[in-house]
Simulated scan of single mutants.
Amino acid sequence: MGSALSLNTVTVKEKWGLAECIEGCARHAIEGISPWRDVLHAMGVAAAARQIRDAGLTVTGLCRGGMFPAPDAAGRAAAIEDNLRAIEEAHTLNAACLVMVCGGLPPGSKDLPGARAMMRDGLEAILPTARAAGVTLALEPLHPMTCADRSVLSTTAQALDLCDALGEGVGVALDCYHIWWDPEVAAQIARAGRRIAAFHACDWLVPTTDLVLDRGMPGDGVIDIVGLRAMVEAAGYQGFTEVELLSRRWWAEEPDHVLATMKASHRC
């Protein structure tokens, strides 16, 4: 598949905390790591930054910021405050980007345009801080099946329209699981160019038993991950391939076996 490999910590979240993930990456010669904020907070940001640095790992992203839509002004303000903390954490880790999962409809709402306006308002509110910290906000479009509860940002084209509108400091995180189906994917990857801040790899299984928690190891499903990687490289992205598996099956495996399987699939 090419490129260096990165472990997204959610891949082994049931059995390893962040310290074990860092040690595991070093043991398996995996050069990158992308922590989720829950395990980062459990370890402590300063301690995590120190151990990651000592292990010689690159932080390919911090997961996650976003989740801006809320039913009231207090909820929206709280989301903005949390995102400002996430920017500070990403800066401390020297993360390549802060991955933005922008949020779904507020509870009880059917106002999709309104939720998208809240998303843009939230991004505009935190962008000056992100720019000052040198942290790229990587907008991650999620599969439309998540529009109601996780992300009203559904396509790469939507994400790039926001990048165009917001300007410097905003890019995209492209996850194979979420973009592979899009008939415009090739054209939009080419359009993204050097605004691609992260590339996430996992596979779509057939049959899929859970639309969120049954992702496949790269190579086990129907996505042409090698082809998508070639597209992002042609667009100018030379960064890591980050494996991010939300999978009950793989969470049940021993993490050392998961990392060894990741490396084997990455060489294919």
Rank of each mutant, 00 (worst) to 15 (best):
G2W: 01
S3I: 00
L5I: 01
L7N: 06
N8R: 04
A19H: 13
E20C: 06
C21R: 02
C25M: 01
R27W: 06
A29D: 14
E31A: 15
L40F: 04
L40R: 07
H41A: 14
G44L: 13
V45A: 02
Q51V: 09
I52L: 11
R53G: 15
D54C: 12
A55R: 13
C63N: 15
C63D: 15
G65H: 12
A70S: 14
P71M: 11
D72V: 04
D72M: 07
R76A: 15
R76N: 14
A77S: 15
A77R: 14
I80Q: 14
E81Y: 03
E88V: 11
T92R: 13
N94S: 14
A95L: 10
L98K: 12
L105H: 07
A115T: 03
A117E: 09
A125E: 15
I126W: 08
L127Q: 10
P128I: 08
R131C: 01
A132L: 07
A132V: 03
V135R: 05
T136M: 14
L137M: 11
L139K: 02
E140N: 04
M145V: 12
Q158T: 01
D161W: 00
D164F: 01
G167Y: 04
G167L: 02
E168A: 13
V170E: 03
D175L: 10
C176P: 05
D182A: 08
E184V: 00
A192W: 07
A192K: 04
A192S: 10
I196P: 01
A197W: 03
A201I: 05
P207A: 08
L211G: 02
R215T: 07
I223C: 13
A230D: 08
A230P: 03
A235Y: 00
Q238G: 14
T241D: 08
V243D: 01
V243Q: 05
L246Y: 06
P255R: 03
D256C: 00
V258L: 01
T261D: 04
R267L: 09
R267C: 00
